[in-house]
Computed example of a mutant assay.
Amino acid sequence: MAQQPARTPWRERLPGLLRRALARPAHAAAPARPANPDAVVDCAVYVDGRRRPGRPHYTDAYAQTRRRRRSFVWLGLHEPSPAVMAEVGRTFDLDAFSVNQSLADGHRPTLQRHGTVTLLVLRTAGYVEHTELTGTSEVIDTGDVMVFLGDRFVITVRHGAAGALTPVREGIQDRPAVLAEGPWAVAYAVCARMVDLYLEVAGHVEQDLERVEEMVFARDRSADVQQIYQLKREIVEFKRAVLPLQTPLRTLTEPRPDGPPPALRPWFVEVEGQLARAVDRVGAYDDLLNSILQSRLAQLAVEQNNDMRKIASWAAIAAAQTAIAGIYGMNFANMPELNWRYGYPAALLVMATAAVTLHRLFRRSGWL
């Protein structure tokens, strides 16, 4: 029987095993998902109304929602570039018209349906602090926010500095029962936030109106027409943000198969009531500003009339002196009192008497 060679102890074989293990090519690690673009303010996955930990890439977040029931992803964007918005559109299957529409601001508040995606457009508003109102003061800063609502996602695209949505996200996350209703809960929170901002801006504008009204009816009347026109332009811009939102909100309160779930309709009704308050206040401010403007224009007309009366009064006084001096400056040989010793002082006395008499008459009639 052949003798088997003795095995090398494992302690002696260990260095060789380590060298062979280190010499093997390591398997390439899976490429990491790139970070969210700078335009992404926040991205989160919500399951049963509660946020999952972390801030994943929106592609991974959307993939997670497809594997979980009662979940959706909320992607918040601020002034995205065309490249970023195009990639987002491909990921969430948004139509090209909506993607192009979301790249610019200045849209009218509206509610649109594009396939399985609902687009809600709202205007944002913010009050610009200023020490005094001038002919070029910016009083109200407006922008817009577009809300894309799908079955498993909600995308908010905001333009402008006003209407930041971070407080909206923080507030609705403290209400998991409402957030569990899905993407439409985010739409409700955004609408409620915008209407609250409208009421807040309306309160500040009311203070500006009170200051303008005081200046118009003060004794010195320091208010300038340019200031009133500037404030009116700002209020008109504010009206364009507030009034058109009534139609989309009214539509959201109606029972529709592609609308909010029944549990959220009472909340939208409440927001509609708040918006009605804002609409009434803005309309009242516009009417009040029209009255202030008309009053100031009437004051200017009265002031111009008073100036014309003063000019006419002094012209009449000067005309009396000119008439006397003109008559006695003709130097005809047979003029009465031409060679009188006291003719010159008498003429001056007549001129002075005529001036004083006319001045008193004009003062008594209110022309001077």
Rank of each mutant, 00 (worst) to 15 (best):
A125R: 02
E254Q: 13
L14G: 06
A164Y: 04
T353H: 02
L94P: 03
I311L: 15
S102G: 13
N290R: 14
L111Q: 03
V73Q: 05
R113D: 08
E87N: 14
V178Y: 06
K239W: 10
D144A: 05
N290K: 12
C43M: 05
A347T: 13
T322Y: 11
G283Y: 06
E272A: 12
D258M: 13
F332D: 04
R296D: 04
M146W: 04
Q227G: 06
I327G: 05
V205M: 08
F97H: 10
A284E: 02
E210A: 11
H159Q: 08
S81G: 13
A39M: 11
L249M: 07
Q299M: 13
N100W: 00
E170Q: 13
R55V: 12
V201I: 08
A30D: 10
R123V: 11
E272Y: 01
A315G: 14
I292V: 15
V201R: 01
R51M: 10
E181Y: 02
F332L: 12
G89I: 09
L358V: 13
R309W: 08
T116R: 09
L348K: 09
Y188N: 10
A192E: 15
W367Y: 09
S295C: 07
V145D: 05
V225W: 07
K310V: 15
T251L: 11
A298K: 00
L77C: 08
L368K: 05
L264P: 00
G366Y: 01
E254K: 05
Q299A: 09
N339A: 07
Q274W: 08
A312K: 09
P266E: 06
P82T: 07
Y342S: 08
T65R: 02
T247M: 06
R281D: 11
V236Y: 00
L297C: 03
H27L: 14
E181F: 01
